[in-house]
Simulated scan of single mutants.
Amino acid sequence: MRGLGEQVDGELQLTRIGLGQSNLTYLAEDDAARRWVLRRPPLGHRLASAHDVIREAGILQSLADTDVPVPRIVGITENPAVTDAPLVAMEFVDGLAVDRMSVAETLTPERRRAIGMSMPSMLSRIHAVNLEEHGLSGLASHKPYAARQLKRWAGQWEQSKTRELPALDSLTRRLTAAIPEQTETSLVHGDFHLRNVLVTRDDQQLGADACGEVVATLDWELSTLGEPLADIGSMLAYWPEAGEDYSGDLTATALEGFPTREEIAAEYLRLTGRDEAALRYWHTLGLWKIAVIGEGVMRRAVDEPRNMADAGTPTMERIDTLVDFATEIADRARI
């Protein structure tokens, strides 16, 4: 860290933070309370092309001078004297992570709504990034996104599944047969939801207009180029409403004040002018992908328990419930 030009007093203390169970995230703090964040791949066996923290760091560097707030990259190393895996150091952003029910429950309904409505606004800014201007046009293939996603995540399912799940296989076939036409290509975050942003804190005294503003967008591991509606569909998949039980340990968005999925979708469509016709398809695919990711998280925790986050891992029951809910959304959309 000192070799990168950072002032470090004494020793660095490392503490794992966040509830992410793919790439691992740590808070690094020196004796003078200066803070940084470190990211590395999970421990143990990793699937090919997954958990690429160096690629993720490159995306953050490309976004540094855009309208999308991201942490500044401090440095990258693969030096075996320092680390057994690629390691990225970035600035610590002092924002509020609404990643636990205990945090969400402390917020007023007005603040919950402000945070919720800031999410589609941030997505619209991500999708407006000029790919050529910021060196992102070569980030990924420009071929149709849905087919690429289905191929990638169906392959991940086959490599990481812990059992057979015919309902998921059926959903894969239905999604493949119903791919909508793609008319544009933008930067896609790939995993945009409440736990992957930091928002303004109450004590930052930024005024009512900024009380829910996103100050950093995190976890760009799955970022690629593709259909922008996929991001809003994925976000809706992570946004349970009152009375729904498919989301596992975080049902914050069902609390009073948070906007509904319909309100979020309407705000995004208003800001971007995009067509809502394909949105249920992308909502279904988002739920399907979360189920696949959940199975991979469960498998990694079984293979290497040190990968498990404080919140535990998804269960078979939760993954089955996700697939059932995705099937219900697919039925409504006549997919």
Rank of each mutant, 00 (worst) to 15 (best):
T66M: 06
P228H: 03
T253N: 09
P41G: 06
Q205T: 11
R332V: 11
T108C: 11
D202E: 12
N130F: 09
D209R: 14
S141P: 03
R152V: 04
G212H: 01
A33R: 13
Q182D: 13
W220C: 00
P166L: 14
S124T: 10
R112L: 05
D209K: 14
D67M: 15
T315C: 13
L287V: 08
G5C: 15
A266Q: 10
I293K: 01
I290E: 00
I17W: 06
Q149H: 13
M1C: 08
A309T: 04
V197K: 02
R46G: 08
W282R: 02
W288Q: 03
R332D: 13
D209C: 11
I335D: 02
H45T: 13
A333R: 02
K151Q: 11
Q13E: 15
D94H: 12
G5L: 14
R111G: 00
A97P: 03
D52K: 04
Q205I: 12
R270P: 05
V53K: 00
R300Y: 05
G5V: 07
A216Q: 08
L19G: 09
R261Q: 10
D30K: 13
W220A: 01
T183V: 14
V197Q: 02
E181Q: 15
L24C: 05
K289I: 05
A326K: 01
L175V: 06
E133K: 15
F192Q: 00
R34H: 09
E105T: 12
E11I: 07
